[in-house]
Each structure stands twice: as C-alpha cells, then as structure tokens.
Design a protein around this nucleic acid. Sequence first.
DNA 1: GTCTATAAGCAGATAGAC
DNA 2: GTCTATCTGCTTATAGAC
Lengths: 212, 212
Amino acid sequence: MSEVAPLRTPRAATLRKQEHILRAAEQQFARFGFEGVSLETIAVNIGISRQNLLYYYPSKEQLYDAVLDDVLQSWLTGMARMAQHPDPTTAITEYVAAKLRFSQERPSGSAVFTREVMTGAPRYAGRLAEQVLPHLQADVRQFERWAREGLIQRVDFTHLMFLIWACTQAYADLAPQFALLLGKPALEPQDFTTAQSLITGLVLGRLKPNAS
Amino acid sequence: MSEVAPLRTPRAATLRKQEHILRAAEQQFARFGFEGVSLETIAVNIGISRQNLLYYYPSKEQLYDAVLDDVLQSWLTGMARMAQHPDPTTAITEYVAAKLRFSQERPSGSAVFTREVMTGAPRYAGRLAEQVLPHLQADVRQFERWAREGLIQRVDFTHLMFLIWACTQAYADLAPQFALLLGKPALEPQDFTTAQSLITGLVLGRLKPNAS
DNA sequence: GTCTATAAGCAGATAGAC
DNA sequence: GTCTATCTGCTTATAGAC
C-alpha cells in the first residue's frame, strides 16, 4: 500500500526530468527522424545514460509519441483561436503571427511533424484525423461565414489553410536553407517580421472583397 | 589496353541499372532520410542484393549524393527559365505551374531535398550555395527589373521566392497530410489545379501595380 | 533510480570465389 | 558482375547488482 503513492504522483524532479528528455528528443527527432535517432544520442545530449532514459520512457516509440503529442497541443490552440475572432483581418493576422512565432521559437516542433508526415504518418494518421481535422473544419466554417457576410472573397479555404501552414512552417523546417541563401548563419528576427507581413499581405490581398 | 574501354564507356545495361537504383534510392531517402534507410531495403526493392548495389555505388554516401545531384538539375532549369520571360504574369504563372508539376510527378525528389535541408544540409550546404544561389539572385534581379518598369509592386523578392517554394513543395512533402485531411487516399489532379490557381492568385494579387 | 553487463540483431563495408 | 562469407561497429532492449 505504501507503493501506491509514488506510482500515482511522480515527484517534481521526475516531471522535470521527463520534460528535459522530451525537449532533447524533440530536437533530435526533428533533425534525423524516428529511424535516424539513437536513444544514446538523446541521452548523452542531456548528460544521462541510455538505460536511465529507458527508465522514464520504456521504449523509443513511446518517447516519440510523447513528443508528437506535446507538439500537437501547441498547434491546436492556435487553430481554435482563429475560429473565435469575429473579424477576418484580425483573425488571420494573429493566426499567421502566432504560427510564425512558433516556427521561430520552437522550430523543432514543426520539423518533427513535417518528418512524420513525410514518411506517410504511419504512427500518427489516426490522431491527425481525430484531432486536427475538427479544428480545420471549424476554421473553414469560419471562413465560409465571413464570405457569406461579404467580409472576404470566396476561395477554396481548405487549400488556403494548407498554404498558410506551408508558408509558416517553412520558416521552421527550411530555415537553414533560407539562412544559407541569405548569407547568414541563422534567420534573424527581422526575417520573421518580413515573412509575417508578406504572408499576411498575400492572404489578405487575395481575400479583399473588392478585389477580383 | 583492352581494359580501358569498358571502364570509360559503361554499357547501356549498366546505365539502366544505375538509373534504376537511383530512382529506388530517391524514394527511400525521401521517406526515411539518409540515416533511416538501409542499403538492404533499397536493394531488395528492385530485386538485387545489397552487395550488388555496392558494386554500382561504392558507398551509401555516394549514392545519396548522386540522388541529390539528379534532383537538383530538375530544380535549376525551372529557376533559369523564369529569369528569361519578359512578362511577369506569364513568368510567375509558368514557374508555379512547373514547380507544382514537379511536386505532383516526382514528390520524392522534393522530399529528399527537404529532409536534407531539415538536418541542416550537412552534406549539401556547399552545392546549395554554389548552384542555387546564382539562380535565386538572377530571379530576384528579374523581379527588381519588373518593379523598376512599373510592372509589379515592390516587395522582398527573396522572401517571396522562399514562399513560392514553400507553397509548391508542400504539395509534395505534405501531400499525405493534405490527402488525409481531405478524406482521400491521395491528392488528385484537381487538388493540384486548385493549388495552382490559388498560389498564382496570391502572388499576382499582391504584385499587381495598382494594389496597395 | 541509476548503474554494469550483456543479449540479440542489423547496419555498412570488404575479401575473395566463380 | 554477382555471389557467399565475414568483419566491425552500433542499435534497442533486458537482467540484475547496488
């Protein structure tokens, strides 16, 4: 009976260590994908042994799933927020800004997702459909509402969301390439500002009611 | 002396087999990245042995380099073509169309690149700067010329190219996710048509001289 | 909780027979 | 050119001492 308590309520130190492992794993999976990462690399990266890592996450697959779940939550909140704004200009501007901020502050999160999708999402197709699809549909319905109210032009809003994702995620996934071609070691805050106004301008310009 | 000929001019069968290996490798590297692919998998995929594959490509790294080089050539021709068109509307429309066609017909090629870039392009940073950068600069100069002639609005053309790449490549790299969210097993020709008019509309709408 | 030791398997690459 | 055999090293995972 004295065994029950420690199992149900892990100590703060345990939670912190799990979080630490999770972040290190996110960065490694982002760069090399599930198959390309060794638990040894993740472990030494944060100064623990491979065996100790396996104590906290019993298998490589469970660790990977935990990383994906952690990233997904950050994604969905942004999508949920857009469906609530009454004004399309504000909603879109803030959504693009939030998505780009995520790319800037946590590029690994975006990259893990992109890699998973590129392999055909074998480990994640289910959760993708169950959790992302409802939010996507809610956002598309919001676009349709704005269109009916005459606030925006009508286009294929699902594909428009795909393109917003593509543009904002590129500033995480393809950041090394962009930086290289800009002749700098890494993207600077100014590049994200430029990207934000450019992406927002592209989308809002196309949706403006009086435009063709 | 009779040894020289076969070494210098490989027979047609050899060339065909190299090409066969190259295509199989491209698909595997696209899905699983350099570290995630085994030569065994590539070999059995086309019905040869791992050792026989190593006869044609002496190492995994040389095979990977050959794949990247093959893909890069297809990329650069499209970029070179845009710098030649006198009319921005035609040039941009055709560039987007060509880029999307590549994503549709050869998604693996795009994915190998994206994966390489996402790992920080350790094997490819040099060639990226040497071969892609000149074409990017030529295209940006063409945009600047159009802007001086009053044919288009002035924006940050380098980042605009980044966004065009992001949008068009997403229809290769993220195609599985898009298809899943659209409720179909794979993207259909109609989806690429929708994407093409949407992307072209976004870019041309923003560059239209009389728009803000 | 963290360690050492080790199992069991697969990777890339080479040597040499045919 | 294609094969069998083999080397070396690294991978995930487990067993068990402390």
